[in-house]
Every structure is written in structure tokens, then in C-alpha cells.
């Protein structure tokens, strides 16, 4: 491997961008395909499929030769706005799904270590926390807004839309969401952008308890994560 290709691969990882190293087997010819370049690549289909699964592996090229695809995908982060009962239910489930969870809620009565032991908990307003105490959102983040309070949820949803998070969900009835769509549209987001917000949040499994809603939301996140190909960036 050329040292500059290795350095490029490491640089993409450091920047939390996905990349795939294509190595011809057995002769070792190599090239690095950055995520942004995949749609225009001759191997777009196979690369997109491997990227969605997040798995390295052998692939057969159109010319019949074999190549090994080293797939490098940034670890997925889950940012939940609202230190509420549903978020508490998400804690153990997110851990077993390898989702790095951060809970943000400026209401200090909710955001207490007693309610969220061992969780990355930030008692700040989302717009102050994101890009500050919490690393800025990116495409490999899922954001779930669960406070029901537009003052808290809306800025987080706006940040998630701007960052192109792969999943954006918001708790609330259809009526609540209609009002939210109205506010975000007023704020300058297009219909297509606002349409990316999943509401009502979670897969339709008839969830009733907070833990069941947590399960529905996480299932929706996994479904979106594993869907190939990935949504276009912002």
C-alpha cells in the first residue's frame, strides 16, 4: 500500500467520513474511494452496498477479478434531546446496539445523574451543547427530539437537518408535528428537508410504555442505518 493512500484512509477516519479502500487481489493494486465519490464510481453499486452494511469483504469486479473492500465507517452516535422516561429506556438498548448515546436537556430537574447513571448527559440547551460540549452533529448521527417543547426540540432538529443526520425523529402527535413543520418551514427549511423528520417517531409497533417507544425509535434508527444506499448528504 502506498503511504499516501494509508494516510488518506486515516485522515478520512479522523474526519468522521466513510471511505472504502479497494485492493485488487492478489496483485495488490489499490485506490481509496471517499464516501462523496461513491455515486460516481464505476463500482458504485457494490461500494454502496458494502458501505450500508459497514462490512469489509471480498467483491467480484465487473471484469471478473477479485477485490477486497476495506470499509471504514465512523462509529454511529445517537443524540437524544430530552432526559425523559423514553430516553431512560433507550440507555441499555443503545449500549447493546453499540450506539454512542448522548442525552441533552437544559431542564436540570430532568437531566440528573441519578436518572441517567453512567450516561453522557449534558444539561444545556441544544444549540449551546452541539458543537460545544457535544461534538457537532454529522451524517453518522441519529437525533431524536423527545421533549415535546419546541423551545428545546426545534433548535436541535434544525441543527440535525443542517448536518444531514442519517436519522431525525421527533416525538409528538400528528397535530403537534403539523405545527412543527409550519415553524421549521417559516425558519427557511424546504418541504423536502422537513420531510426527513420521522414523526410520529418510531416504527409502528403499537408501542405503549416508554421502553416500548424507546424500542420503536431504536428499531427505526437501525432500519435507516442499514438501508442501502445511504441518503444523499446535505
Amino acid at each position: 500500500m502506498r503511504a499516501d493512500i494509508l494516510a488518506g484512509l486515516n485522515a478520512e477516519r479522523a474526519a468522521r467520513r466513510a471511505a472504502i479502500l479497494v485492493t485488487a487481489i492478489p496483485d495488490g493494486g489499490q485506490r481509496l474511494v471517499r464516501e462523496a465519490d461513491i455515486p460516481g464510481d464505476p463500482l458504485a453499486d457494490v461500494l454502496a452496498r458494502h458501505l450500508a452494511q459497514g462490512k469489509s469483504g471480498l467483491a467480484t469486479l465487473p471484469d471478473g477479478r477479485q477485490a477486497f473492500l476495506t470499509v471504514q465507517v465512523p462509529p454511529v452516535r445517537l443524540v437524544v434531546v430530552g432526559a425523559v422516561h423514553i430516553s431512560q429506556g433507550m440507555v441499555p438498548m443503545a449500549a447493546s446496539l453499540d450506539l454512542a448515546l448522548t442525552v441533552i436537556d437544559p431542564r436540570t430537574a430532568f437531566a440528573t445523574p441519578e436518572r441517567f447513571p453512567g450516561v453522557d448527559l449534558v444539561a444545556e440547551w441544544p444549540d449551546g451543547a452541539l458543537g460545544g460540549r457535544v461534538p457537532a452533529l454529522d451524517r453518522y448521527c441519529a437525533l431524536a427530539a423527545l421533549t415535546h417543547d419546541p423551545k428545546i426540540d426545534d433548535p436541535a432538529l434544525a441543527a440535525a437537518l443542517r448536518a444531514g443526520c442519517f436519522y431525525i425523529g421527533a416525538l409528538g402527535s400528528r397535530k403537534t408535528h403539523a405545527a412543527r413543520v409550519e415553524r421549521l418551514t417559516q425558519a427557511g427549511f424546504t418541504q423536502a428537508e422537513v420531510g426527513r423528520i420521522r414523526a410520529p417517531i418510531g416504527l409502528a409497533i403499537g408501542a405503549v410504555s416508554p421502553a416500548e417507544i424507546a424500542l420503536a425509535v431504536l428499531a427505526e434508527i437501525v432500519a435507516e442505518l442499514r438501508r442501502a444506499p445511504r441518503p444523499e448528504g446535505p
Binding site: A3, L6, N10, R13, T23, L58, T70
Partner: peptide, 25 residues
């Protein structure tokens, strides 16, 4: 595995001869 790739780059940067082995199947 990603740390390994960083180490490979660092070792090469120090002027060491370096080989990388990858499980492909």
C-alpha cells in the same frame, strides 16, 4: 483495527519498514 492503521502510518513515518496483514476471507 483502525488504531492498527494509525500505527502503520506512524511506524512508516518513523522510517521503519512496515507490512500490513489483513484478513480477507
Amino acid at each position: 483495527d483502525t488504531d492498527i492503521l494509525s500505527a502503520a502510518e506512524a511506524w512508516r513515518g518513523e522510517g521503519r519498514a512496515v507490512a500490513l496483514a489483513t484478513v480477507i476471507e
